[in-house]
Write a protein that binds this DNA or RNA. Structure first.
Ligand SMILES: [Mn+2]
Ligand SMILES: [Mn+2]
Ligand SMILES: [Zn+2]
Ligand SMILES: [Zn+2]
Lengths: 145, 145
DNA sequence: TTGACAAATAGGAATGATTACTATATAGTA
DNA sequence: TACTATATAGTAATCATTCCTATTTGTCAA
């Protein structure tokens, strides 16, 4: 996975150059820390990790940097996180199309999706209560700016 | 869908009786408002709606009631909402198993899931950028209390 | 290599969502 | 009807996120 890592680091430099983002020690460190992470960290988790190296880095810098990385596509946001709690009165099995611009969630039904099998590896990791396909994208309303 | 609605209202009374939740005008109204909703409302959205009927209901009551409805299974929470932003450095297509107790998100890969087709109806609603299967449940760690 | 300057940073304050607190009111029931 | 555990309104506290500002720094053109 060394090549992979160099690739993504190159992407980091390229994207930063593209978007006129300066390569600072803070950004570089946050990028490295993210690359190591496998736990879908929160901003606060990353903050705690990078402080071991740069003890006076500010939380705001970490947070802002993570958001700018999200904007230039070096990382993604996990679906739904960072939004207010949203309540789901529709108890039938169904699926979601989420607009990443306006955060509208559209329900849809699909038998094929209902029937997907839970992989054995996942069955071992816990008990599944709910299966859902989440499609993310940009809805028609937001498409027209 | 009238029968359906009576069914779910009966479930509301039954579950409330089960769990010793009193049927108050506030809960009843919030239940009715939820039943009508198709937009995955936030607590604040429900608060605005119910105030038209009960003008001095408090936000806290609405919020608390929605959470208690979630606990007794009358409504669900939309996946991920209400959590801190979580960053996803893994840019390969993959899927998630989320523990609803500890909120750990486990990645897994699955070719069959990668290959699911986007329904035509959804294609019309917008541009899909990301397809992901989200399995929710309780992980092994949380299973043992 | 140097100087100018737009961009980025640290530190802290403001905002907004969520949760906690408490005195009063009320649903359920004997 | 009267009792009592619950629920409520109103408000305060907490926590994540975003904003502000004085200062520092990376980049680039000379
Ligand atoms: Mn839904
Ligand atoms: Mn993931
Ligand atoms: Zn949209
Ligand atoms: Zn768990």
């Amino acid at each position: 996975m060394k090549i992979e890592h160099e690739e993504i680091r190159k992407m980091f430099y390229d994207k930063c150059a593209d978007k006129r983002l300066k390569i600072t020690p803070q950004r570089s460190l946050i990028f490295d820390e993210l690359s190591k992470a496998t736990d879908h960290p929160t901003a606060d988790a990353i903050y705690k990790r990078v402080r071991k190296t740069l003890s006076n880095i500010s939380f705001d810098t970490v947070y802002r940097t993570l958001l700018s990385f999200t904007e230039i596509g070096i990382v993604n946001l996990v679906e739904g996180t960072g939004e207010q709690k949203r309540f789901e009165p529709n108890l039938h099995q169904h699926h979601h199309f989420r607009c990443i611009k306006c955060h509208t969630i559209y329900d849809f039904e699909n038998d094929a999706y209902n029937d997907i099998a839970v992989p054995k590896a996942v069955q071992k990791q816990g008990v599944i209560i709910n299966k859902r396909v989440v499609l993310e994208g940009i809805c028609s309303k937001c498409k027209g700016k």
